[in-house]
Structures are given as structure tokens and as C-alpha cells.
């Protein structure tokens, strides 16, 4: 067989194969399983409900709450300033700019933490930065921030400070415990640093 015929045959065969297989439309994961394991063990993606409450009250401009529950649940109740990106549609292109960015700190939440964590895992594997999960989810938020329980008298001072803050936060956020806003609680942890996104280079080329 001549080179010409081999090449003709090769091209037509490869052409038939490529025409029959479905196109690869999956988004490639940027992080390997090992890298993910390290990240998950570090638990650096978690932010506490107290911190979130603090940022909401202080109207921190860099905070973006993202509700990953269904639109129905979102309609019924959602945190102040939250936007709704249900888990099922999180990969849609229209949300990409919001989830893959370097200006804001996205805090994902769901009722518990399962869905928010699932969302975070996917986003993280795609290489997106600055996404966090609210520890405990909305359930915990209601139990602690909106209806704080007074600690027992034997608790450490720290617990009382937390309680005071929560009561104050609860009132500021329209919850049950109505108490004058007291000390600016020292619960505020260091805010996670926002990682500047490397400018995604538009593919360059052409003459």
C-alpha cells in the first residue's frame, strides 16, 4: 500500500470515529484527588456562622452569600443579601463569572452542610478560589444565631461573650432574643484572604 493510500484510509477512519463519538463537553478538573484531600483535611473552606453573622451585620462589601438550595426554599426564606444558585445548575455558564472570581468572598450555604459542601467540592476541583461553606448551614444558624441558648453558669467567659454577640446579632437580624446591641464581640476571626484571580487570558492568536 502506498503512503497516499495509508493516509487516505487513516483520515477517513479517524473521521468516522470522531463523527460517531460524542463530543467531550466536560469541564476539566484542575485539582487532583491528592490536592483535594489536603484541602478537605485542612478544612480551610469552612467559615463559622458567627463570622458570617458579623459580616452581614457590618455589611461587609466583600461578602457574597450564595444559597445553593432550590428556588422554592430560597423564596420561603433566605439570608439577607443572598443570591440563589441551586446546586443542580451550578455548572451553568451564566454563573461562572460569579463563582470563579477574585473580588468577593462567596459563602455557600444550604439547610445543613451537605449540599453546600457538594457545591464547594465541585467548584474547588474546577480550580475556583474564594468559595467557602457556612459551617452548620441554616439549621445551625437558626439554633445559634437567631435563637441563642444561654450557656450554663459554669461555662468559660468566652462562651458568654459568644452568647452576647449572638443575642445582639439575632436582634440586629430580626430574630427572637431582643437585647440591646452590646460589645462588638471578639468572635470575629480573621477573614479569609481573597485570592486575586489570575487574569484569564483570552486565547490569543491570529495574524
Amino acid at each position: 500500500m502506498t503512503i497516499r493510500n495509508i493516509i487516505f484510509l487513516g483520515l477517513i477512519l479517524l473521521g468516522i470515529v470522531i463523527a460517531m463519538v460524542p463530543e467531550n463537553t466536560t469541564k476539566p478538573y484542575k485539582l487532583t484527588a491528592e490536592e483535594m484531600l489536603v484541602e478537605v483535611q485542612g478544612a480551610a473552606e469552612m467559615v463559622s456562622a458567627d463570622d458570617v453573622a458579623h459580616w452581614v451585620i457590618s455589611k461587609d462589601p466583600s461578602l457574597q452569600l450564595i444559597d445553593v438550595r432550590s428556588p422554592d426554599e430560597f423564596q420561603t426564606y433566605h439570608l439577607e443579601g443572598a443570591i440563589n444558585i441551586p446546586l443542580s445548575v451550578i455548572l451553568k455558564d451564566e454563573y461562572q463569572d460569579m463563582l470563579d472570581q477574585g473580588i468577593k468572598m462567596n459563602v455557600l450555604y444550604s439547610n445543613g452542610t451537605i449540599n453546600s459542601h457538594q457545591a464547594w467540592m465541585i467548584l474547588r476541583q474546577l480550580g475556583f478560589e474564594n468559595n467557602y461553606v457556612m459551617q452548620g448551614g441554616l439549621n445551625y444558624w437558626f439554633d445559634t444565631i437567631m435563637n441563642p441558648q444561654e450557656p450554663s453558669v459554669y461555662s468559660a467567659d468566652e462562651e458568654f461573650a459568644k452568647y452576647d454577640f449572638r443575642k445582639a446579632a439575632s436582634s440586629a437580624l430580626g430574630g427572637g432574643g431582643a437585647v440591646a446591641l452590646s460589645a462588638p464581640a471578639k468572635t470575629k476571626a480573621d477573614k479569609p484572604k481573597i485570592i486575586r484571580k489570575k487574569k484569564k487570558k483570552a486565547p490569543a492568536g491570529g495574524c
Binding site: L11, L14, G15, I18, N24, P203, A204, G205
Partner: peptide, 28 residues
Amino acid sequence: FTGAITAMLGLLFFSLFGWIDLSLIYVN
């Protein structure tokens, strides 16, 4: 034409195998 087709097939197969991200390839 053989050149254009070879590269075209190469891109499609590379994408199929996950070797190349076509969204980062310049399309004039």
C-alpha cells in the same frame, strides 16, 4: 487540506481524551 484535516482531527481527539481544553484554543 491534509494539514488542516490532521490538525482538526488532532484537536478533536485531544479534546476527547481530555488532553486539551478547546475553550482555551484561539478561534479566529
